[in-house]
Amino acid sequence: MEPAQFLTAPRVTIVAGKGGVGKTTTAVALGMAASSVGLRALLVEVEGKSAIGSLFGVGVVGYEEVELIPPGRGEGGLRARALTPDDALVEFLQDHGLKRVSNRLVSSGALDMVVTATPGIKDVLILGKVKQLERAGTADVIILDAPAAGHAITFLRSAQGLLDAVKVGLIESQAREVCELLADPTRCQVVLVTLPEETPVNELTETAFSLEDQVGVSLGPVVVNGAYPLLDGLDTDPEQAAREVGANLKRGEAESLALAANFRLERSALQQVQISRLRQELPLPQLHLPFVFTSQLTREDLASLADILIDEIGALK
């Protein structure tokens, strides 16, 4: 599939997965991939502080949009912002001619109460803002980095839940429009992320079925993150491998080489089992991102992950 087509077919891509599986990494890589094929991409964070800005030298990403990659030289550009419910509510009220109410809500501290009184309002406000951005066409692609784990289902179910409880008011129409966005496969898709490990794969499968049943949102391909790239011949004795090419090993080096090789073989075997299990249990196409051998990703690492994503998307039918 043409990457640009994949990324814009629905304009909104929601990236979800449990904590620690590389959800944010995937969201950023998708955004960078979109930019690199000439699309104007917007990355939306929802869980407050995001360290992603520092990788691009822009500091903490807040409510206002910041530019991570400028447009030009083939790049469509990547922007980012972090939506918070409080900011979104104030903006929502101002957009609806209720500036004075919003000021008073903030100054009296009553915001807490309104938010508590209305189930799911925080999530609806954030998704409502995303819907507004989608409608305004400020970006070709909007990548939403959803809350972690089970919260993703609550997050995406929020609008339906609010409609069950609230029958009138401005927020009700907002919730209705959010439901329309989520239910429309031409406007929105969810990309789930997992590690190739047993528990994450189980949870991903559960989440996928819940999302289809309870939210009715369209599921895109699944991202399997962190599989070790396969290397041939790792079961060879290092001494013998050295002899084959006429090389000498330093003292103790054979042990280190063997340890690293065995570790890699063992992990890879476990990972491959989980990848095929996921394929059997969840009939969705998979996009594979390799394990990056570092304990701290750099911008360059993310850029190469973005390139890999483009290739993987290109290979989709």
Binding site: G233, V245, S256, L257, L259, A261
Partner: peptide, 27 residues
């Protein structure tokens, strides 16, 4: 140096692992 040979792959596996392990120790 040994790219394309089994020894090259063994060194790649070692370099990969060492990079991560040393990074973790530092953090």
């Amino acid at each position: 140096t040994f790219a394309g040979t089994t020894l090259g792959n063994l060194y790649t596996a070692l370099a990969d692992l060492r990079t991560v392990a040393q990074g973790e120790a530092e953090h």
